[in-house]
């Protein structure tokens, strides 16, 4: 095909939006669950993690795709790891320099972005065989798909577990038992297993809405 494809053609946009729903890395491909449990007790770390993972998947996809014709097949996994690790270190350094509080909360999890299955999965499955621009969109889409789930989980966990959102109080203090009200935070929401249950509910909701996704 000699005709140049437009940058935002329907096919390319599908790469971007597909992972938000039908091809979601967390709920459909069941990748990246561990970090989804770890960083979602509050909304702010979840947002930062979502942005960090999106940046890393997008740019590692882009870089690997640009290098794809030169990468020797025998060491391709090592090459991918070097690129991903370098990007993660960069993200970590930037967080430490500009959002220190959050970087303290995320601490080890930023380093663990390297092991996030979504990234290596997209590199192997997509970036090695596609041009840079579609690869970049694919990485962006998958990162956002992951981030979307993280934010949904964190939203429910923070509001029911702490009564706040992004640190701002949503459920008024006066309703709490300690202040003479009737309400108490659900301590279970603070614990990682709560995230699993919410992920389960999201999958349930998604599959009941979209019959194609149901396994026969």
């Amino acid at each position: 095909m000699s005709q140049k494809e437009s940058l935002f053609s329907a096919k390319n946009m599908k790469l971007l939006t597909g992972p938000l729903d039908r091809e979601n890395p967390v709920t459909i491909q069941i990748l990246g669950i561990c970090s989804a449990l770890a960083v979602t007790a509050q909304l702010k770390p979840a947002l930062v993690m979502a942005i960090s993972v999106t940046v890393v998947t997008a740019f590692s996809n882009l870089i690997i795709s640009m290098m794809r014709n030169g990468i020797p097949n025998r060491i391709r996994i090592i090459v991918q790891l070097v690129v991903v690790a370098a990007l993660v270190i960069l993200v970590d350094q930037i967080l430490r320099a500009y959002v220190y509080d959050v970087s303290k909360k995320l601490s080890v999890f930023v380093g663990l972005i390297i092991t996030n299955c979504i990234i290596m999965g997209r590199l192997e499955a997509f970036a090695l065989g596609n041009k840079p621009w579609p690869s970049f969109l694919d990485g962006l889409g998958n990162g956002m798909g992951y981030g979307l789930i993280l934010v949904i989980i964190a939203f429910f966990r923070e509001i029911f577990g702490s009564g706040t959102l992004l640190g701002m109080r949503i459920i008024p203090e006066s309703l709490y038992i300690s202040n003479g009200g009737f309400y108490a935070n659900n301590g279970f929401m603070i614990l990682p297993p709560a995230a699993l249950i919410i992920v389960g509910c999201i999958i349930w909701f998604q599959k009941s809405r979209n019959k194609d996704l149901q396994e026969k």
């Binding site: 990468i71 020797p72 090459v79 690129v83 370098a86 270190i89 960069l90 350094q93």
Partner: peptide
Amino acid sequence: YSAVMVILVAIALTLA
């Protein structure tokens, strides 16, 4: 290939 790649990555990280 691996030598050149690693050196480039090292330079980038050092600068950062």
